[in-house]
Design a protein around this nucleic acid. Structure first.
Length: 576
RNA sequence: CGGGAUGUAGCGCAGCUUGGUAGCGCACCAGGCUGGGGGUCUGGGUGUCGCAGGUUCAAAUCCUGUCAUCCCGACCA
């Protein structure tokens, strides 16, 4: 039983100054968490109980699916991460440290290497597969900018699983098992979520989906087709385009276009020079980038912006991508800022990619690679060639679904789970092989599956809170019922205590506000802030032989006669 | 990485322009009233004014440096 008279808890009346999002404000105000450093939080009793409830649910569902729990250290040696090249690839986001001998260590951001090595150390036959193992561990990522409180911290709790199979069919089965275990888990957590297709990442892997909890403060953007159910992270949304069917254009024609550094100014000039009817979509935007030190450009129609995250996610093998800066223009004197076109790219040593909308055969108005000059009738396939089509244009509301051509809706969400078919990257790098039926050595194929456990606390808070406080789903809440003793004298306290013991004896989790000093009003406010799903008030009603029973979420209140209150309350909660 | 801002009690903030040795609200402690919506009265200050230098008789305040934190942007080529 949780007793507020002794619970380590101090609720706050004011929002913390550094909090922006609701979950952050409320978790701090209600005394669930306290900030220790940027992106690093301590859990107070109420918060820790909540966190462990989520852990418990996750663990139960993993175990029910037949996965085995293991546990690795958070502090890891550099070596395995060097073998997979992640010591370098992970870059600045990796927390690194040295021991007294100067040896390098890291705080694990994920544990693919360790799991792979564990299986390698124990297993060597196809008969041992399939295998899925998981852990619930504290992870570390030195985010450039931790934000939104618990949602994006530098230290966080994550459940990560890894599956090991001999072949792709096995991997598909392991993947499906995780997928359904995740559905059960998030449903039990009382979350509203969508499963969306995601970019499987630069390192290959055939299938990847994210579990997203819709929420205005979320950092991820996804599209949803309300007609056919297609859902994708914006990074992964596919663009379906028809082949070019228009007439072929005349030869390229350069024209003067002073003072048109932007698309808008260019369109104005086109309309006055060549007659009205020109729009931004007739022009071709050339965005110059530096990808791992190499100059590249990406083409999108002039009415679209480039979504760099989306582009990078789809551009295999590039770790660092940034826009051209003035120094880069100095290095490539053939490129004139504001007047760039793809037709001279080969000559200038630029690799060109294009959004699928820039179809072969289409012609465009674009920069002439000379100051104050543009060129028209520049035709894809005739006047320039590209390295490949890459999804790069920003996704806009109203863009059409690639499956059924219905306009999609765009929404924001918090990523709470991610499942994906890793393939053989790690097994290959760390030489995880087993002998197959024919005695031949085969590289194992893997899947990797994550749930943000601490993030789920915040995501649930985001989805369930209201104006007055938190409002937990029952399984997640720190208790099933919050009993308030209110009023003068000993009687309400003694009665509340009795109820608390009886309700607990029925197997429910009870928190009792047995504090003598605070007035009833304070206790009500605290109860609403803390967000336990049912609230019972033992106080003034005693005079007329009743207690009050409230539903935190609906606000519904009822007065129950003392004689039947206990059984009514117990059955109501159990049925909830 | 770039831009903006802020560091003063557990939390939220004022004081800084014009230097004189720290204050308000909440919380907290003692006591009284009140006792169903963050009530009230009296008394109590719990502080390395982020840190380090400097100027000065005197620095929260002015100067320099440094550290930390928060917000915005990582885009119209």
């Amino acid at each position: 039983m949780l007793r507020m008279s002794t619970l380590l808890l101090r609720t706050l009346r004011d929002d913390p100054a550094d909090a922006e999002v609701a979950s952050h404000k409320l978790l701090v105000r209600a005394g669930y968490v306290r900030r220790v450093a940027a992106g690093i939080y301590a859990w107070l009793p109420l918060g820790y109980i909540t966190l462990r409830n989520i852990e418990r649910i996750v663990r139960e569902e993993m175990d029910a699916a037949g996965f085995q729990e293991v546990h690795f250290p958070a502090l890891l040696p550099k070596d395995p991460y060097e073998q997979t090249n992640r010591w370098d690839e992970y870059g600045q986001d990796l927390f690194r440290l040295q021991d007294r001998r100067g040896n390098d260590y890291l705080l694990g951001p994920t544990h693919e290497e360790m799991f792979t090595l564990m299986v390698k150390g124990e297993y060597s036959s196809y008969k041992d597969l399939p295998l899925s193992i998981y852990q619930i561990q504290t992870k570390y990522r030195d985010e450039t900018r931790p934000r939104s409180g618990i949602i994006r911290g530098r230290e966080f709790v994550m459940k990560d699983s890894y599956s090991f199979d001999l072949d792709d069919e096995g991997l598909a089965i392991s993947y499906e098992k995780h997928r359904s275990a995740y559905i059960k888990t998030f449903t039990r957590l009382g979350m509203n979520y969508n499963i969306v297709s995601a970019v499987s990442g630069a390192m290959g892997g055939s299938r990847s989906e994210e579990f997203l909890a819709p929420c205005p403060t979320g950092e991820d953007t996804y599209v949803l087709c309300e007609k056919c159910g297609y859902a994708a992270n914006v990074e992964a949304m596919l663009t379906k385009v028809a082949p070019y069917s228009g007439e072929s254009a005349p030869a390229m024609e350069v024209f003067d276009s002073p003072n048109t550094p932007t698309i808008d100014s260019l369109v104005d000039l086109l309309n006055s020079k060549f007659g009205p009817g020109h729009v931004a979509a007739d022009t071709l935007k050339n965005v110059l980038l530096v990808a791992d030190g190499k100059a590249i450009s990406v083409l999108v129609p002039g009415d679209r912006e480039v979504d760099l995250k989306r582009f990078q996610a789809n551009l295999a093998g590039v770790h660092e991508l940034r826009l051209f800066d003035d120094q880069d223009f100095v290095k490539y004197p053939g490129l004139v800022k504001g007047y760039v076109g793809p037709q001279d790219a080969k000559k200038l040593g630029i690799t060109v990619y294009a959004d699928p909308r820039v179809v072969i055969g289409s012609h465009w108005i674009t920069g002439a690679n000379q100051k104050d000059k543009h060129v028209r009738y520049v035709t894809h396939g005739r006047d320039f060639e590209i390295e490949g089509f890459i999804e790069a244009a920003e996704v806009k509301a109203g863009d059409t679904c690639p499956e059924c051509a219905t306009p999609v809706v765009i929404d924001r969400a918090i990523e709470i789970g991610h499942i994906f078919q890793l393939g053989r990257k790690y097994a290959q790098a760390l030489d995880l092989t087993v002998l197959d039926k024919d005695g031949k050595s085969r590289v194992v194929t893997m899947g990797s599956y994550g749930i943000g456990v601490s993030r789920a606390v915040a995501a649930i808070a985001e989805q369930t809170h209201d104006e007055i406080g938190l409002c937990w789903p029952r399984e997640v809440a720190p208790a099933d019922i919050h009993i308030i003793a209110a009023g003068k004298g000993d009687q309400p306290f003694e009665m509340a205590e009795k109820f608390a013991q009886d309700i607990e004896a029925a197997g429910l989790r009870v928190m009792i506000d047995d504090r003598r000093d605070p007035s009833a009003g304070v206790k009500f406010k605290d109860a609403e802030l803390i967000g336990i799903p049912f609230i019972m008030v033992v106080g003034k009603g005693l005079e007329s032989g009743v207690v009050e029973f409230r539903n935190r979420k609906s606000g519904e209140k009822s007065e129950l006669p003392l004689a039947t209150a206990l059984t009514t309350i117990i059955s109501t909660i159990q049925e909830a």
